[in-house]
Design a protein around this nucleic acid. Structure first.
Length: 424
DNA sequence: TCTGGGGTCCTAGGACCC
DNA sequence: TCTGGGGTCCTAGGACCC
């Protein structure tokens, strides 16, 4: 065995973040909703036990939720982002090779041949994160990333393991793989599960023992890589340096259907402002802008319209007004009167580092508003988003998403710090 | 009444080149 | 009657992830 991969995963992350500042909710069911309070995107163990499904629309489960007095939160990404950063910082201080895989997961490469010391080490990490940040985590280990993912799942499912499970030093790996649904393997989604089921491949063990040619043909090289990883052959390395991003997206569903081009324009303009600020914060500029809108796909009885427009910019830019101008021109071309629009958004692509841009032979460099944008960013960073905004984004914002159960920004806003009182 | 948002990668097919 | 072979690039769509 050459190396061991560990996957550290925060348990029910968003729900755990909310509960951290509401300790009286420990042991009781908690769910967190997506933007616009639409879907359930995180559940505490107690909420899972009640049978509240993941990703399901909130309104379809509200009676179950009320009946069991489930605590409901709108999503609070400032809070989750900050707590995630704290967890990842501890990992990076303690481990030489860390890949931050998502807001609540990190892969770690551990020294080879450490044997049972690995489990001790993982237990220590788990304890330290719980003590220093307050978030419970699970650690799974294996000879490949895919098996580390499986191990993590086992660690979570069976409380007997104390939140840590090692599939690298494990005698009965195949027996355990036989107990894992094929659709629960990292990289095997719903569509591929259906294909595999049609071939009688139902468990991780079945997939491990499946035919390479068939997998290559029907699940492409990506599926074949998963099979190899299940066999213990590492195909997906640790990615220390995240690849440069290729796109920035900002899109939102509306609180209620939007009909007018004016309201759509305000929304798009405000999404462009968010996307452009993100671009600048990473020292990037975009050469292409896509603007899109769509009606509610779930309302089959209403007329449907969904369209995207790509606008090529003469010069790459990160200037908010320049991007707003193009986005509104694109929007006007795809807007059709009479539809009840539910969502709009923008995507910026063909990104390049500021200062690396190719000049146009026939046109002078347009103004990039560098100093103005810099001032806007600094004001908004200090005093809060939208302290300064473009008039085209509107003031009333009737289209703005609803977030009725949002917790305070406990850790990122001085005005919202939690207050602790000592009892007499 | 009420159904999220932000990403990446792979493939097939068309257009085009010599 | 008989109509090549090899390659690149782009795009749309599908699939996956959290």
């Amino acid at each position: 065995m050459n190396t061991v991969f560990a996957l550290l995963d925060c348990n029910n992350f968003y729900a755990s973040c909310e509960r951290l500042f509401r300790p009286e909710l420990e042991g009781s069911p908690v769910v967190v909703l997506s933007n616009n309070d639409g879907c359930i995107i995180a559940r505490s163990n107690e909420a899972k036990a009640l049978g509240i499904p993941m990703g399901a629309p909130y309104f379809k489960n509200s009676s179950l939720i009320e009946k069991h007095h489930v605590e409901v939160f709108s999503s609070n990404y400032a809070l989750y982002g900050d707590l995630s950063h704290r967890v990842m910082t501890i990992l990076q201080q303690m481990e030489p090779e860390v890949e931050i895989y998502s807001i609540d997961e990190a892969f770690i490469r551990l020294p080879k041949n450490a044997g049972s010391a690995l489990t001790e080490h993982a237990l220590f990490l788990r304890k330290k994160i719980k003590k220093d940040v307050g978030i419970p985590v699970s650690v799974g280990m294996g000879p490949t990333k895919t098996l580390a993912k499986v191990a993590n799942r086992i660690a979570k499912k069976d409380p007997g393991h104390g939140g840590v499970f090692d599939l690298a030093n494990c005698q009965n790996r195949d027996t355990l793989l036989a107990g894992i649904e094929v659709g629960d393997i990292w990289g095997i989604g719903r569509r591929n599960s259906e294909k595999l089921y049609s071939q009688g491949i139902r468990t991780a063990l079945d997939l491990k023992n499946s035919n390479d040619e068939w997998i290559r043909e029907h699940l492409t090289v990506v599926g074949l890589r998963t099979v190899m990883e299940l066999r213990g052959i590492p195909c997906i390395p640790i990615d220390h340096e995240p690849a440069p991003r290729k796109s920035v997206v900002c899109s939102r569903s509306f609180r209620k259907p939007v009909f007018s081009l004016t309201d759509l324009g305000e929304a798009v303009s405000s999404y462009v402002s968010v996307a452009a600020a993100k671009l600048r914060s990473e020292g990037l500029m975009a050469a292409n802008l896509h603007v899109f809108l769509r009606t509610n796909r779930h309302r089959k009885n209403l007329p449907q319209h969904a369209e995207t427009r790509m606008v090529s910019l003469v010069q790459p830019t990160s200037s908010t007004p320049a991007l707003i101008r193009q986005a509104l021109l694109g929007l006007a071309k795809i807007y059709q009167e009479g539809f009840a629009y539910q969502k709009a958004g923008v995507m910026l692509t063909e990104l390049a580092k500021t200062g690396m841009r190719q000049q146009n032979l026939f046109q002078p460099l347009p103004k990039n508003n560098g100093d103005v944008m810099d001032a806007v960013d600094r004001i908004n960073s200090r005093w809060g988003r939208n302290t300064v905004q473009y008039a085209s984004s509107g003031l009333e914002k009737p289209w703005c998403m609803s977030q009725e159960r949002k917790s305070p920004a406990y850790t990122t806003n001085w005005e919202e710090l939690p207050i602790v009182k000592a009892s007499p």
